[in-house]
Nucleic acid binder design. Structure first.
Lengths: 327, 327
DNA sequence: CTGTTAGCGCCTTCAT
DNA sequence: ATGAAGGCGCTAACAG
C-alpha cells in the first residue's frame, strides 16, 4: 500500500506538500498539485483513514444508543439520524442495549476510549447524573429520553403533555375507565404516566396504578394485553398506548372479543405510523417529533464537536393529537 | 490524557510490559501486573483506541449497506446483524443508500480507505462484478441480495423458489389472474419475478410484464396500488407481494373497494412479520431466513477477517409458505 | 519475564 | 509556496 511518502518520492515534492494537496489546502502551486495527482493515479494511492484518525484523534463516528432498532420508532429515528449526520460527514454506529444497564455502561466506556466522537442517547436505563459520571468530558446528547438537562443537552418530546392531551380528550368525551400501557420503564415513560394522572386530576377524577401496564412494546404485546383485559370483568372504555403497533394489537383483540371500537371503547396510538391508517377503525394517534428533533440534534452535535462550551441546551417539542376513527 | 508511557513511568516498568498487561498477555509476572494496574488506577488511564486501530490497521467496524433501515425487513436484519457481530466485538455502521449508485460506490471507496474492516451488502444497485472492481481485495459479503457468488461470498434466500411456491399455491387453488409487486429493482427482485413466471409455465399458463408492478415497498404503496387496481376493469384474483406491509395496504384497499379476501381474491405477503396476524383476514406469507443467514454471515466474516482465502462461499436458504386466511 | 527499538500514516508547526 | 522534522499511542519483533 503506497503512502504519502511514496507519493512524495514519485512526484518529487515533500510529503508535506502531498498532504496539502490531499486536504485541499490553498497555497499549493498548480504545478505541484498536478505532479501529486499524477503520482496518486500512477500508484493507485488511497488515503489510510487510520493514519488520519490517529493524527486527528477523531473517528467521525457517532454512536447511538437504542433499546432495539427493530422497534419502528427507533428504526425511524436511526434512519433519520443516519441521514442527517451522514450528510455532514459523520457515520452512525448502532448500539442496541436490549435494556441492559451493563451494556449501556460498556458503551460509555468505549466513548471514553474514543471509539466514537460522541454518543446520542435515545434510550437509557441510567439517570442523567450516572451518565455524566460515566462519560466525563466526552460528548453525549440526549435525544428522545426525558432527562432534565442538568448536565447534558436534551432534545425531547413533551411526553407528559402528549399523554395529557390524549387522556383529556378521552375524558372530555365521557370515557371514565381508561387504561394506559407504557413501554420499557424509563424516565420518558414515567412522564407519560404522569400526564395520564394529571389529566384525571384536572377532571377531578381519580386513577390508580392498576390502570397502568408496563412492558407493552410490540403488536403481540398489545394483542396479548387485549386478550387478557377484554376477557376479564374489568373491561376499560379507553386505552392509551405507547405506540401505534401496540394499539393495532389491541384493536385486533377487541375485534375478536366483540368489543366495538369506538362504540364501547376508544384506542389511541402513538407516533402516527402508517399502520394506523390501515386498521379498522383508523387509529387516533399522537405525533412524534423525529424530524425536528434530529435536525436540532445534528446542529447541536456539530457545535459541541467544534468545541462549543455553553451550558446544556434543552429543547422540548409538543405532540399533536391526530383524531381518526378509533375514538 | 495519560498514555502507556506515563503508566510505565509511574509503575516503573517499560511500556512494553504495560502493553502486555493491557492485552492480557501471558508471561507477565504478577508483580508487574499489579504495579501496572495500580498506576492505571492512580492516573485514571483509559486506552486510546486510535492508537490501537492505527497500529493494528483495523477498526472493528463493519459497514452494512441497506436501502433504508426504516423498512421493517432491513431494520430486522440490521438489528440481528448488530447483535450477532456485537457479540464478537464488531460494531455495525449503517450506510443507507436510498438506492443511489453513487452513494454505494462512495461506501466502497471508504472501505478502500479502511474506514471499516469489511462491508456487508444487503442491497446493491451494482452488479457483482462492479462491486468487485470497486472493493479490490477488501472484504465484502453479500447478505440477502441475489448475486451469483462468482467473486464474493453470498448468503441469500432462494427468492425464485419462494415466489414459485407462492404462485404455484395460488394457481393450484384455481386462481388465474395474478399480479406480482416487487420492491426496488435489484437482482433479488428479478429472481422473484422469475419464480412467478416459472410457476405459470409449470401450469402451462402464460403471464406478462403487465402483471408486474415495481417500486411497491411500503404499506402506503400497497394501498395506493390497490386503490388503482381494484377500481380498474382488470381486478386480479390473486396478489403476490414483496412484504407483509405491502400486503396489508392491499388488504385495506380491497376491503374499502368491497373485494372479498379470500373469496374473490387471495393475497400473499412476505417476511412473516407480526402485522400479518393482525390483519383481517390474517395473511398468508413467506418466511425469510434472517436468523440463519446472519449466523452464517457472522461466521464467514470472522473467517475472512482472519485471512481465510478459500473460494467464494454461496449458501442459499429456502423459504416456506405459511398459510393463513388470506388465500 | 522484561526492556529496547522501530515503526504504523498522517498532519502541522516552523522555518525558509 | 515548500520542506524538514516531530510526534500522535500503541504493538510486536528482537534481544536479553
Amino acid at each position: 500500500m503506497p503512502t504519502i511518502i511514496d507519493i512524495s518520492h514519485v512526484s518529487g515534492v515533500s510529503k508535506s506538500t502531498v498532504s496539502r494537496v490531499l486536504n485541499d489546502h490553498p497555497h499549493v502551486s498548480i504545478e505541484s498539485r498536478q505532479k501529486v495527482q499524477k503520482a496518486i493515479q500512477e500508484l493507485g494511492y488511497v488515503r489510510n483513514t487510520h493514519g488520519i484518525q490517529f493524527r486527528l484523534q477523531a473517528t467521525n463516528h457517532i454512536g447511538v444508543l437504542v433499546p432495539d432498532v427493530e422497534h419502528p420508532y427507533f428504526s425511524k429515528l436511526v434512519s433519520t439520524l443516519s441521514q442527517s449526520l451522514g450528510s455532514i460527514g459523520y457515520q452512525l454506529v448502532i448500539y442496541q442495549t436490549q435494556l441492559s444497564r451493563e451494556y449501556e455502561k460498556e458503551v460509555y466506556a468505549r466513548l471514553l476510549r474514543r471509539e466514537m466522537d460522541a454518543v446520542i442517547i435515545a434510550h437509557s436505563q441510567l439517570s442523567e447524573r450516572e451518565i455524566k459520571e460515566c462519560i466525563g468530558s466526552c460528548t453525549a446528547i440526549i435525544c428522545n429520553e426525558a432527562m432534565d438537562g442538568e448536565f447534558l443537552d436534551v432534545f425531547r418530546l413533551d411526553e407528559e403533555d402528549a399523554v395529557f392531551q390524549a387522556t383529556s380528550y378521552l375524558l372530555s368525551r365521557g370515557r371514565r375507565y381508561l387504561f394506559f400501557c407504557m413501554d420499557h420503564l424509563t424516565p420518558l415513560q414515567e412522564k407519560r404516566w404522569s400526564g395520564f394522572q394529571q389529566a384525571h386530576q384536572q377532571f377531578g377524577l381519580s386513577c390508580s396504578e392498576s390502570q397502568c401496564y408496563r412492558g407493552v412494546v410490540t403488536m403481540e404485546d398489545g394483542y396479548a394485553l387485549g386478550e387478557q383485559l377484554f376477557t376479564s370483568d374489568q373491561v376499560p372504555d379507553g386505552m392509551i398506548t405507547g405506540s401505534d403497533f401496540v394499539a393495532t394489537g389491541l384493536l385486533r383483540a377487541a375485534k375478536q372479543r366483540g368489543i366495538g371500537v369506538p362504540d364501547k371503547m376508544s384506542v389511541i396510538g402513538f407516533d402516527n405510523h402508517p399502520v394506523g391508517c390501515m386498521t379498522t377503525p383508523e387509529l387516533t394517534t399522537l405525533t412524534n417529533c423525529i424530524p425536528d428533533m434530529v435536525q436540532d440534534v445534528t446542529q447541536c452535535l456539530t457545535q459541541r464537536l467544534k468545541g462549543m462550551q455553553s451550558a446544556p441546551i434543552t429543547k422540548t417539542y409538543k405532540a399533536s393529537l391526530i383524531i381518526r376513527n378509533s375514538t
